[in-house]
């Protein structure tokens, strides 16, 4: 069985600024990878490349064994890649229900729509109470729930979560990670970009540490703690 996501020697840049230098990573089907590293290491860029938002300048991106290099983000989404971007990942000007409709429409069709909406409200009753409220007026935790509801009702092959704990209270972070665990159990592979190392390592089997736009270390999650501590003490020196 081919891995659900495979990056082969990917380099990427924002205009004149290069962010990635030959990154190779794989996420097995149903597997999980925590992507760690300091600020500016290129974690978010890896996530963007893996969902088609940033087109690599060289190297290739394979989803489920199919080469999608240079494809548009919606083609990645249709191939089963869901990306919850950093910060706000819901449409602020649409209501909660409309946010959900937007993502269920393609997969459930007009007839399955109300059924899918009900399942989302069952999972997160709070969302059901606020279904006709603008998503931008939700709290940060509720916004995360909304984006989690989208993927929980309709599990993709791969979920890319970029800093799912950013700006949330510890208790909400726990909830978010519970949902992520539920998604894993549903058979979805997970790629998590995280600065909250502890949570990510508990959730994931494998870990990759990025530094200066390249993979510095890759291995099982339980060996990662020592590496991370080592990196924390060294990054300050070589800038």
């Amino acid at each position: 069985m081919s891995p659900v996501l495979e990056l082969r020697g990917v380099s990427a840049s924002y205009g004149p600024f290069r962010a990635l230098f030959g990154v190779s990573l794989t996420v097995e089907a149903g597997g999980s990878l925590a992507l760690l590293g300091s600020n500016g290491a290129g974690k978010t860029t890896v996530a963007r490349v893996a969902s088609g938002l940033v087109v690599p300048t060289s190297g290739s991106v394979l989803v489920d064994g199919e080469d999608l290099t240079g494809a548009r983000p919606h083609q990645y989404a249709r191939a089963g890649v869901a990306h919850a971007p950093e910060g706000r990942s819901v449409f602020a000007t649409l209501t909660v229900a409309e946010n959900l409709r937007l993502s269920f429409r393609r997969t459930h069709g007009a007839s399955g729509l109300s059924c899918a909406l009900d399942r989302a409200y069952d999972l997160f009753p709070q969302l059901g109470n606020r279904r006709s409220q603008m998503a931008g007026t939700l709290s940060g935790g509720e916004q995360r729930m909304l984006s989690m509801a989208r993927v929980l009702v309709n599990p993709p092959k791969l979920l890319i979560a970029d800093e799912p704990s950013l700006g949330l209270a510890p208790i909400i972070i726990d909830e978010v990670y519970q949902s992520l665990r539920a998604i894993r159990e549903a058979g979805t592979a997970v790629l998590i970009v995280e600065q909250q190392v502890g949570h990510a390592l508990q959730l994931c089997d494998r870990t990759a540490v990025l530094g200066h736009g390249a993979v510095e270390w890759e291995g099982p999650a339980d060996e990662a703690t020592d590496v991370m501590v080592g990196q924390m003490f060294t990054t300050g020196e070589d800038g």
Binding site: G52, L53, H74, A77, F91, T93, E98, S103, R106
Partner: peptide
């Protein structure tokens, strides 16, 4: 609905599997 989503963010609309262009 897709039109309104594109107004806010074409890229996030793409991530929902909709061809924003």
């Amino acid at each position: 609905l897709a039109l309104r989503a594109v107004v806010e963010s074409p890229r996030m609309t793409e991530l929902s599997g909709i061809n924003a262009d």
